[in-house]
Amino acid sequence: MAEYPLKVRWGDTDAASIVFYPNFYKWMDEATHEYFSAIGFPTSNLYSEQQIATPLLEANCQFKSPLVFEDNVIVRSTVVEMRQKVFKISHKFYKGEILVAEGYEVRAWTSFKEKAKAYPIPDEVREKMIPGNAETVMS
């Protein structure tokens, strides 16, 4: 699991003074990049050195409690499912001990050396991504 702390900024809120929902998707994306840095594979290095990226295939988020300007939030990210070329990463948003939102992203391990093409996730990356609770699917 990786943790990504953030503070709600004025520009993150809508006319009702609560966080505008697309920001949760932006934060999930940022948390995924932080996750890869935390396990030793910063996405900027993956792309600059190997032309590897993890494009988004699917995203979902459920909102449980509103966030407002200057709230401090922790996003906890964990890989919960892994296939040969695709993985699902869960993101849980906490304000203190309160779960305010939870979502996930499905992403593909993709080479951009020529035409974009999904490739098997390398073993050295896979080993760092698979937590004890992940469902490993080799299809």
Rank of each mutant, 00 (worst) to 15 (best):
V8G: 00
G40M: 07
E3G: 06
I130Q: 07
H33T: 08
M28S: 01
Q50M: 13
K92Q: 13
E135M: 13
K128T: 09
L6A: 07
F93R: 01
K85L: 09
T78Y: 08
T43S: 10
K88A: 05
E34L: 12
W109V: 04
T136K: 13
Y21T: 12
K85Q: 12
A16D: 04
I39Y: 10
M129I: 12
T136L: 15
D14R: 12
E81S: 08
F20A: 06
E81K: 14
G40T: 04
A59F: 03
V19E: 01
P120T: 14
E81Y: 11
D123K: 14
K26P: 03
R126E: 03
S48C: 09
P131R: 12
E49N: 10
Q62M: 11
E58M: 06
Y21E: 00
I39Q: 09
M138N: 15
D12E: 01
V86I: 15
M82G: 04
V73T: 07
T43F: 02
A31E: 03
K88T: 10
R126S: 07
V137N: 08
Q84A: 11
M1N: 05
K92E: 06
P42G: 11
R83W: 14
A116P: 15
R76M: 13
Y104C: 05
L67W: 03
E97Y: 11
V86P: 00
G96F: 11
V68Q: 14
K7V: 08
L99P: 02
S44M: 08
G132P: 01
K92S: 12
I121F: 07
E105G: 00
D123H: 12
